[in-house]
């Protein structure tokens, strides 16, 4: 497991940051998602263009801990907009924060690639509606670039 010192200042303040993206369900839902709820902001829905961010509050940061993977990220609160661009296809989507996540430290050092293009560590999760704008839901995990929108 890769553990290293967090970047200072936050990596996303200096410009776009690269990392992994996956998708998560929230809001009213079927199957194992039915117990998920509306997320930390109380607004999360699988069908909306939203995302989860690892640093929405002190409580959120204490769970996600991307710093344990050597990544520091800015505090951004509910409704803040990020642009996520798939490194595989170049497709992008702009979404608003609706939840806290992903739990970056549980996947520290993980890398996903498309061809020779790779990115490390889970830095953002998209709703199914948002993820399916840039990749197939069946891909599950993709390398992306994240920037403020």
């Amino acid at each position: 497991m890769a553990r290293s010192k967090a970047t200072d200042p936050p990596a996303d303040l200096l410009g776009p940051v690269q990392g992994e993206v996956s998708w998560f369900c929230c809001g009213t839902a079927w199957g194992p998602c039915s117990s998920t709820g509306k997320g930390a902001c109380g607004t999360c829905n699988s069908g909306s263009l939203q995302h989860a961010w690892p640093n929405t509050s002190d409580a959120c940061w204490s769970i996600t801990r991307p710093d344990r993977c050597g990544v520091s990220l800015s505090r951004r609160t509910c409704g803040y907009r990020h642009r996520v661009t798939a490194l595989c296809s170049g497709a992008s989507v702009v979404t608003a924060i609706a939840d806290c996540g992903p739990q970056t430290d549980l996947f520290c050092g993980e890398r996903s690639c498309c061809g020779a293009t790779c990115a490390d560590n889970r830095l953002i999760d998209l709703t199914p509606a948002a993820y399916s704008q840039i990749a197939s839901l069946s891909s599950g995990l993709r390398p992306v670039e994240i920037s403020s929108a």
Partner: peptide, 9 residues
């Protein structure tokens, strides 16, 4: 993008 971020798609 035609849909407002945060809104239903």
């Amino acid at each position: 993008q035609k849909v407002e971020p945060g809104a239903p798609d």
